[in-house]
């Protein structure tokens, strides 16, 4: 694998993270359940969505923090080199 391929893979990974964060923001409120009053197991269905979504957000953030995109996002290498 040469440098060109590495850069391409990184760029693609970074784009996937940006898309994942955009999805997390966009569906933090389940717009597709708007005016839906279904109650499941004692709580509104949209509240179950919220509970699942926050757990998913934690899992996504955990995965993001483990990968290389965490450092690239803020140009950490440049700051450390000074």
């Amino acid at each position: 694998m040469n440098d060109y391929h590495r850069v391409m893979i990184r760029t693609r990974t970074d784009a996937v993270w940006i898309a994942a964060f955009a999805l997390l923001v966009a569906f933090a409120v389940p717009w597709f359940l708007w005016r839906n009053a279904t109650v499941v197991a004692g709580l509104p269905l949209w509240l179950w969505w919220h509970i699942g979504w926050m757990v998913l957000a934690s899992a996504t953030f955990y995965a993001f923090a483990r990968g290389g995109a965490w450092e690239r996002g803020v140009d950490a290498g440049v700051i450390r080199r000074g």
Binding site: H50, I51, M54, V55, A57, S58, A59, F61, F64, A65
Partner: peptide
């Protein structure tokens, strides 16, 4: 960062 959303919940 990873624990934050669950704490909010």
């Amino acid at each position: 960062f990873a624990l934050w959303p669950v704490l909010v919940l």
